[in-house]
Write a protein that binds this DNA or RNA. Sequence first.
DNA 1: CGATTTCCTTGATATTTATCAAGAACTTCA
DNA 2: TGAAGTTCTTGATAAATATCAAGGAAATCG
Lengths: 227, 227
Amino acid sequence: MKSPLLEKLALNQVFASLNESDLTELAQLSISRDYDKDAWIVFYGDIWPNLFWIESGLITALKESPGGRSLIVATIEPGDVFWGTALFLDHAPMPVGLIAEKASRIHIWPRERILPIFLRNGKMSWELSRMMVNRMQHASDIVEELAFQSIPGRLARLLIDRYGEEDGPVARDLTLDEMAAHIGSTREMVCRALYRFADDDMIEITRTEFTFTNRDQLSQLAHKHTD
Amino acid sequence: MKSPLLEKLALNQVFASLNESDLTELAQLSISRDYDKDAWIVFYGDIWPNLFWIESGLITALKESPGGRSLIVATIEPGDVFWGTALFLDHAPMPVGLIAEKASRIHIWPRERILPIFLRNGKMSWELSRMMVNRMQHASDIVEELAFQSIPGRLARLLIDRYGEEDGPVARDLTLDEMAAHIGSTREMVCRALYRFADDDMIEITRTEFTFTNRDQLSQLAHKHTD
DNA sequence: CGATTTCCTTGATATTTATCAAGAACTTCA
DNA sequence: TGAAGTTCTTGATAAATATCAAGGAAATCG
């Protein structure tokens, strides 16, 4: 009889490529860890040769400047797989820190436990490569935004990406500081930009919700590179 | 008797993992291409499922904004391997364009020709993964610079990275526009920053050369994040 | 060589973004 | 309920960066 964990693991694109016996071994080799909200899982710069799969909660990958600004570069959601650079490159320091956004449960495989498994599973390596290319594209998008887009443009894109699907009012689930961390700016700039969008009738703002009133215009802002 | 091409290919970390027969097949499957200086090899956004090895010349990977600004994100030198994202991910568009900085000769393998070779060579896939992690780290550095560093800081780092080894005067081999493209800024800003470094006695500037007169101070600027 | 083009330099100015400060609104929790 | 903490908002101001414009210097090329 399969454990529920096993079935959930198999839903991930990487693990799906394993046969049942490897998957079972994988599940047995994993180390479970629970983190409270706001707990650090790894610090920026750590040598961390592990791969993990997140069962529940939410984890944020971020860079921090000495001056206290932070930039969120990825969020890791239940079912996702993530790994430290040192999994592949000895002594390579983590280019981001990982912090639990909510209380989270993850399953970790240290390098030496998982290496044999994907050395004998070419398909799994292949899937990992695909995932890395995905990450690259994501990094590439961030670079493009930082290099070519204004702050209102970046904010517009955040709004569209995050709330763009919904049609009615959407709950504001990020503080201004959090939005600022997503686009690499400050609370104040975000606040002003939001009210400028409201002045231009692209959104309506209440204490708890946003309503998109002109998604096209917002989307245009989000996709138009400034110069 | 080995061809000279074969021996040169084997110097690359990825191809080094192949046995002689695979390497020979690889060499036979390659398509040679020559590009004049300033010729485009791939455009940003193209679907380009190829891998290539560069024999001679110099290739630049860059992003361009509609307004004509460009950002150089990598340079590809003789002996290097590079590939399009569509090699792994169907329909994934190139996140950069590739342009020949000098007249260049490359050897290309379309996806369908090289895929079989590295599906049967786990070690080669592994090396590709390592290379991808390297690229990730590089991308990560760029993000950090763009997010947290001032333009003088970014320029200082460019100078150190590019000319830091030498001790005497070094030849200026980049135009101001090119330097600007490396750090995501403009010709004028670069010019002013250079003269500020000179005013602060960190470098001496002549028409054709730079001389570092206080490398430590420059290096400090390069590594200090602004906020 | 002379003409053309590219590259560099600098001032003036505009724009964007950040910082500082203060207070208001809201939330939490005892 | 009231106190403490967090979050939001806005104005004033400063700093960083870009843009525009113009001229000069150097390189290239016929």
